[in-house]
Write a protein that binds this DNA or RNA. Structure first.
Length: 291
DNA sequence: GCCCAGGAGTGTG
DNA sequence: CACACTCATGGG
């Protein structure tokens, strides 16, 4: 079964390769493949159409893809609102196809706890190990991300064997504190309550709580501040300070679109930093990339 | 071999 | 609240 969706603003390389999600592979040019729940999805862009296949076949594939890529988000409106900011206005054209994704809440929570103090290749590897050891088979070479129940059976030693290091105890702790009911409860919470609930979990601090709020629970006002975003805020806005101060700065500046703004800043600062392809610059002309 | 990683937890000033 | 220190491993 081949499902096709019409979607205007979508660059698969940017969206699935920028580092907001960890299990997608774009090894075949123009084609991206990765798990959504219990099936392995292949995406291919042809003009204005996005073609989707899955193994095994799923009747709700179109809905799954649509949800995952947040096709309901009005990117045009987001850009129109963000372009009131002079810094954003200069570079939005280069990130028109960079979309936020809507990950599974549980997968997102664990993934970003693993992401602390690790680089992306290693994060990918840790998640792959967890999936192959505790997840359910989707294909010969791909397992689903472990459910709460599946991951809950793992001992700290087994988690360490998956390369988690000290994060093993965080994951084990989270498995003891979170179940499906708690997750459902968290989905219904207002943004601030959700954030507080996430912060109660071991291994979850400010940054992870905001990542999970944004990429997992779809709270588009969340603004995760990692080293790259912190760098971008300092370079482009001259904004420095505590996490709280920078978060307030972003909330005031970007409002309900802070999540998209964060992704644009992150992408610009990290993915383009080595290539000299800076798109966002300070008003006034000079790229300010030179020291 | 060496340096560092999409930080968080804990203790101290 | 701001800082320093530590945390277990594997990529680059």
């Amino acid at each position: 079964m081949n499902v096709r969706l019409r979607i205007r603003h979508l660059d698969l390389d940017q969206t699935l390769g920028c580092g907001q999600t960890f299990r997608w592979s774009g090894a075949v040019p123009g084609t991206w493949s990765g798990p959504i729940g219990d099936c392995l999805v292949t995406l291919r862009r042809e003009g204005q159409w996005l073609h989707s296949d899955s193994v095994p076949e799923r009747r709700d594939l179109g809905r799954r893809v649509s949800t995952y890529l947040r096709t309901e988000d009005d990117i045009g409106r987001v850009h129109a609102e963000l372009s009131k900011d002079p810094v954003m206005a200069r570079g939005l054209g280069a990130v028109e196809g960079l979309r936020l994704v809507k990950m599974d809440e549980w997968e997102c929570l664990i993934s970003y706890v693993l992401a602390t103090f690790a680089n992306i290749p290693r994060i990918t590897k840790m998640i792959g190990h967890l999936a192959s050891r505790f997840g359910s088979p989707i294909t010969d070479v791909m397992n689903s991300f472990p459910t709460i129940g599946q991951l809950g059976t793992a001992s700290v030693g087994e988690l360490r064997a998956c390369g988690l290091g000290y994060r093993a105890e965080y994951v084990a702790g989270i498995c003891r504190l979170v179940d499906d009911d708690r997750l459902a409860e968290m989905k219904r919470m207002p943004d601030d309550d959700l954030r507080a609930a996430l912060l109660e979990l071991p291994g979850v601090g400010n940054k992870v709580a905001d990542c999970v709020s944004l990429f997992g629970f779809g709270r588009l006002g969340a603004f995760p501040i990692d080293v790259w975003v912190e760098r971008a805020l300092a370079r482009l806005y001259g904004a420095r300070g505590s996490y709280r101060a920078l978060r307030d700065f972003a909330a005031e500046r970007f409002g309900g679109n802070a999540g998209y703004a964060q992704e644009y800043l992150f992408y610009n600062e990290r993915a383009l930093s080595g290539s000299g392809g800076c798109v966002f610059t300070r008003p006034g002309g000079s790229s300010d990339r030179t020291p």
